[in-house]
C-alpha cells in the first residue's frame, strides 16, 4: 500500500466522522486540527475506525503521529503493509 492510498483511507474516515467538513483541499503538512473543526473525541473516532475497518492499532502514546495527513501516512503505511 502506498502513502497516497493511506492518506485516502484517513480522508475517508474523516469524511465519515466529520461529515460537515470539506476535505477536498486538506494540506498534508499542516495539522488536521488547524484546518478543520476536529476535537480530541474526533481523533479517538479516527483511532476507532482504523481499528474497526482496518485492524490497525494505534497505541495512546503514538496518537501525536496522527496530527497531519503526512504524519499519518508516514506512521500508518508500514502498519498497513505489515498486515
Amino acid at each position: 500500500m502506498t502513502e497516497d492510498q493511506v492518506k485516502q483511507i484517513v480522508i475517508d474516515i474523516i469524511n465519515e466522522i466529520a461529515p460537515d467538513e470539506d476535505t477536498s483541499g486538506i494540506k498534508g503538512d499542516i495539522a488536521l486540527r488547524e484546518q478543520m473543526d476536529l476535537d480530541s473525541m474526533d481523533f479517538l473516532d479516527i483511532v476507532m475506525e482504523l481499528r474497526k475497518q482496518h485492524g490497525i492499532e494505534v497505541p495512546e502514546a503514538e496518537y501525536p503521529q496522527l496530527a497531519s495527513l503526512d504524519s499519518c501516512a508516514t506512521y500508518l503505511t508500514p502498519k498497513f503493509n505489515e498486515k
Partner: peptide
C-alpha cells in the same frame, strides 16, 4: 444540528 452533532 450539524451532521457531526447528529452522529455524536
Amino acid at each position: 444540528q450539524s451532521r457531526k452533532e447528529l452522529r455524536v
